[in-house]
């Protein structure tokens, strides 16, 4: 099936009736996925939105439960359940894969995270194939294809005046069915697309998992320029670490979770003051190892870096993970310093 581009707004209106529709928007200069109808301009040509769509499933701040207390007693404690239907329209292959990675974290290994799983069940994803790449894009080096996101519910591909529309799951079929009045017969293949930035991940994960690598000088050299802000982690579509905190007012309050950053000193500091990752060397090491080695070791689903290039583009000091990958790749053996 195909959808004429001039019917896009009609399609949005149809979908917005069914669910909270998130589309790429530019709001106050920031591109992100925002509800259709929000004040701002549609940004379908933003190859990569500045902010990733992860907050649809994992909001930066998410209320978990609310409570009331009276002196020493807890009068009530009630879980907050969000069950609104959501559609992310226009998600790119890299961001789509980031959801696959978060699924592994939040839905497997013994515990299901209820807050995430409820949102995931109610989410339909419409991926759109890229037609151009940014200088910082390197998703194909990380095993992805910029024009195909196999796990998305619906795949769109730009064919000029039309989008080719292909349902890839049951949820996707339901959505295509909803859009049927606007669709036309027809098909078309997306033109292949290649990133200009290339990295070679061959052997990198294995080298990094070698315990000798942990004490390598490479970490000090790499981390030296880090200023310890959380930009990389907050623009990253796969950074999922969170904190749990509370907010109380009088005798009632709520517990919430919020994005946290492994780049912050407070992240691992324990109540007694001990911090197993006391300086930026340890923190950068942990972040890069998590992205490039630990995740694969734990979940067996490849790297936690999807090659979207956001951290490369936005790091205030240009601490570039692609240059780090190159550097590790060029090492003669794990743990060596040249």
């Amino acid at each position: 099936m195909k959808l004429a581009k001039n019917k896009l707004q009609q399609a949005f209106d149809l979908m917005a009736k069914e669910a909270n529709l998130l589309v790429p928007m530019k709001i106050e200069g920031v591109t992100k996925f925002a509800p259709w109808g929000a004040e701002g301009e549609l940004a379908m040509d933003a190859v990569n939105t500045l902010l990733p769509p992860k907050d649809a499933l994992f909001p930066q701040t998410e209320k978990m439960y609310k409570y009331k207390t009276r002196l020493t007693q807890v009068e009530s404690l009630e879980e907050i359940k969000e069950t609104d239907k959501q559609i992310i329209f226009g998600i790119r292959s890299c961001d789509m894969h980031s959801i696959d990675c978060m699924d592994e974290v939040f839905l497997t290994r013994g515990y299901v995270d209820s807050f995430y799983s409820r949102k995931k069940e109610n989410l339909t994803t419409v991926a759109i194939g890229c037609t151009k790449v940014l200088p910082t894009c390197f998703c194909d080096s990380m095993g992805l294809n910029p024009v195909a996101a196999p796990t998305a519910d619906v795949q769109l591909n730009d064919l000029g005046d039309y989008y080719a529309v292909k349902a890839q799951t049951e949820k996707g079929e339901a959505l295509v069915n909803l859009l049927k009045p606007l669709l036309e017969e027809g098909d078309g293949e997306a033109a292949a697309l290649e990133c200009t930035l290339k990295v070679n991940m061959d052997g990198v994960q294995k080298k990094l998992m070698n315990v000798k690598m942990f004490e390598s000088d490479i970490w000090q050299e790499t981390a030296q320029k880090c200023i310890g802000c959380g930009t990389c982690t907050y623009v990253c579509p796969t950074c999922y670490c969170f904190d749990i905190e509370g907010k109380e007012c009088g005798n009632e309050g709520y517990k919430f979770r919020c994005w946290d950053s492994c780049m912050f000193s407070e992240y691992t500091r324990m109540a007694g003051g001990h911090n197993p990752r006391p300086s930026k060397k340890e923190r950068v090491r942990n972040r890069f190892l998590h992205k490039l080695a630990y995740f694969e070791d734990r979940y067996g689903k490849g790297s936690l870096c999807v090659g979207c290039g956001r951290c490369v583009a936005d790091c205030p000091v240009d601490l570039d993970i692609t240059m780090f990958i190159d550097k590790v790749g060029a090492l003669k053996e794990a743990g060596s310093n040249d």
Partner: peptide, 29 residues
């Protein structure tokens, strides 16, 4: 509108030469 955008990455603080407290009040959660 501006602060609705803020993602609280603290890049502004960390890059600032005047923000040189040993421990920022922000980190005293």
């Amino acid at each position: 509108k501006q602060y609705d955008k803020c993602i609280r990455c603290y890049a502004c603080r960390n890059v600032c030469p005047a923000c040189n407290c040993r421990e920022c009040y922000v980190d005293q959660y």
